[in-house]
Each structure stands twice: as C-alpha cells, then as structure tokens.
Design a protein around this nucleic acid. Structure first.
Lengths: 217, 217
DNA sequence: TCAGAACCGTACCGTACGGTACTGTAAAGA
DNA sequence: TCTTTACAGTACCGTACGGTACGGTTCTGA
C-alpha cells in the first residue's frame, strides 16, 4: 500500500495524478476544454483507462469534485480558554480562509462546472459539490460559533441562521461576481480588510452584552 | 411602428417572441437544450432567420440577456417626506424583490448560462449580465440608501460598501445555493421572514443615533 | 522464462450540433 | 400583375466529441 497523503485513498496515486491534470485543464479552459481526449493527452493516459477508472465523463467530473474536496481544515473546539481577543482572531482567520477558498482557481472552476450542469436533470454534480465541499465549511463555522457561545462571548438563538448571517457579512455578493468573472470582485489583497469589516459587524450584532457574558446566559 | 411595451425596442415583436421561446427552452433544459435547431423549432422560425437576426449562437444568447434585462423597476427619490416606518417598508420591499428576482426561473437560468461560459476566453456574456442586470439593482439600492441618509434615517460613510453589506444580509449564500439547484435555498415562502431579519440587522448596524437624526449629520 | 494483467497510443464509429444553401410561399409595393 | 422582400422548412456539410476496440509495450509474479 503506498504512503497515504492527506487525500482520501479513494483513488490510486496514478488516478490522482490524472485528476490533477483534469483539474488543470478545467481551470485553464472551462468545461468546454475538458474533453476526454484532452484529459487523456494531458495526463498521458489512454482514454480506455479513463473509462475503466471513472466509468464515463460524468464519473470523471464527480471524481474531480470528490478528490478536490479533501483540502479544507476543520475547526474543533479543544476546550481551551479563550478571551474575546483570541476569539476575534479565530473568526478573522475563518473569514479570510473562506474568502480565499472561494476565490481559488479550482474552487471557482468546479463551482462553475456544477452550476452549469445544475439545470439539466439529475444535477448530481451540484449535489456532490454541496455535500463534499460546502458542508465542511459549514461544520467548521458551526463549531466556531458554538465555541464562542459556550464561553459567553457571543449570543444567538439559531446557530445555522447566525452562521448564514456571518457568511453574508463576509462574502456579500463576491462569490457570484467571481463566478461571473468580474475582476473587481476577485482582489485577494482586499480580503483582509473585508474580513475585518465583516467580523466587526458580526460582533456588533451578536456580541454578548456585559451582563450576559458574566452570567453566561 | 408597433405599440411599445416596456421592453426595449431593440428587437421586433417577432424577434421578441423568438427570444421568449428561447428563454423557455433554456429554463426547461439548461444550456445543453438550447440548440439552434431547437430554438427554431420551438419558435417556428427558420435557422436562417436566427442567424440573420442574431449573427450566431453567441449573439442569440446575448440577445436573450439584453431582452430579459428590461424588467427591473428602479427607485427614484421623489423628495417626499419619509419617516423611519415608511423607510423601513421601502427597504423591506427592496429585500423581498431582490430575493424574488434572484430566485426567478429565468434569472437563475441566465446566471447559470453566463457562469458556465465565464471560464473560457471572452466572457462577454457574463459581462453583459453584470452590466445589464446587476447594475440596475445596484442603482435602485444606491438611490434608496442615499434617500435614507439624506433624511437622517441611516448613517454611513461609503455608500457602495454599505450596499454590499445590505446585500449580504439579505442574500447570504442563498444565490449560489439556488444556482447549484439546492432546493432548500429556494423557498419563496421564507423570503418575507428573511427580508425582515435582514432589514432589522441592517438598521442595527446603520440606523442613525438620535442626536444624529436630529442634527442631520 | 512464460503468462497475464495493466495500460498507452491510436484508430475508429456514431451522433449531435453549429452554420450554410436552397426551395417554396406569402405579403408588400410599384 | 410583376417584382422584391422576408421568411419557413428542410436538406446538407464539416467538425468535434463521447465512447469502444485493438495492437503493442511494460511490469509482475509464478
């Protein structure tokens, strides 16, 4: 058994290399450029092997999504003490990470791919993207929010609703605009500033008031 | 000259009927289903006419976007007196309209189309969608914000930034999830509630404090 | 050393689609 | 009535792509 990277062992190293090639093609030229012959040429493998490994073109696309999805770290509450200052830093890091993930070449390409297919019947690709990609981020954020509530730093009733507000404050309309290729939306040098503004507003809305923080309510 | 509807007179009635057919096909089956032969059949016109009117397939797609874009009403400040109550209602209406527009069949289909094309070179379609569709909404919101500031109801420094915060509070991640076909995101019966929550938070962040409102600063 | 598996490269097939050309026809205008 | 324009309908062409088949090569294990 070959050494395992942090990627899932769902694919052999050779297959992973092929998937990496395919992702490169997708990023470079969009779905139109992702032909089976093109992938085979770029990855120096035969079309026959592609069909053997992934079934058909759809299977290849699904494999690309599954493969890529294994690159998001997740936050787990270690129970350590945390003051408001430190918690704010965590939220800030989450916000910056989120913006950077969404602005990534591969993320944008895969989201474009899935969205392009979402209209026709059996939008399994989009479903897969939501399941494998989106939900991990949701989990990390959820854990972060709960950690803050547990320590009395923030206050909320509905965790998911609160998360969506945080998401909206951070991402605004940037994701869709990036997906549309609007260059004005994709400026990573502004992400720091955007993240800080978002976190500040989030605290303005959800920071526990003094008496709550003391009482732990 | 035929009677002018509120649509642009960029296209003849016959052409508008064809574009309507094409939009129907796009909504029903996504881009894959939008073949020139299919449009011709659905609209009972010849392919030759299609190419005469719109140049090529790309031109047809652009025409569909241009044609569809002319269905957003815009807010203009009539200078009338407006109290906080009334202003809040305006914002609420904007929020609900925004959610309903974004959740519309045709809007989703066109955004999917443009995003699907955004990766390959010359993403003119996406650019067109931003220019013709997005910017109108931006204008309406901008006017709304300025009206509120002029009357001392809200306070902000950067209008566009403030608008983007409002947008994020309203839309959250719903647009992308709707584009991905996530049924959980597309529930118009919840839009009222979402709009109210967003407007409430917006006021929490931007409502002018009493002394400002009086001083008009 | 031999058998078999895995796999690359390429040739091949069928089909679907963008785009063009041609024919027939109905309306408009002189 | 003749001519021109606009258009529907259809046939046609070239190409690109998904998917399959096959020959040749390398690697593995007995």
């Amino acid at each position: 058994m070959p050494e395992n990277t942090n990627h899932s062992d769902e694919f052999t190293p050779r297959q992973q290399a092929v998937l990496e090639s395919a992702l490169g093609l997708l990023v470079a030229g969009g779905e139109k450029a992702l032909t089976t012959a093109g992938v085979a040429r770029a990855a120096s493998c035969s079309k026959e092997s592609l069909y053997k490994w992934f079934g058909d073109r759809e299977g290849l696309l699904a494999a690309m999504i599954s493969y890529q999805a294994s690159k998001v770290r997740t936050f787990t509450d270690d129970g350590a003490a945390m003051d408001a200052q430190r918690y704010r830093a965590y939220l800030l890091a989450f916000a910056k990470d989120l913006l950077n993930v969404l602005a990534g070449d591969v993320s944008l390409a895969l989201n474009r791919l899935a969205i392009g297919q979402a209209s026709q019947e059996g939008n399994s690709l989009a479903q897969l993207l939501i399941e494998r990609g989106r939900k991990r981020i949701d989990q990390r954020a959820g854990a972060l929010l709960e950690a803050g509530k547990r320590r009395g730093l923030i206050h909320y009733d509905d965790r998911d609703d609160t998360y969506h507000v945080l998401y909206g404050l951070i991402v605004r309309d940037l994701h869709v605009r990036m997906l549309l290729g609007d260059a004005g939306a994709r400026q990573p040098e502004q992400f720091e500033e955007l993240a800080e503004a978002a976190v500040a507003k989030f605290f303005a809305l959800y920071a526990a008031r003094e008496e709550e923080r003391v009482a732990g309510v």
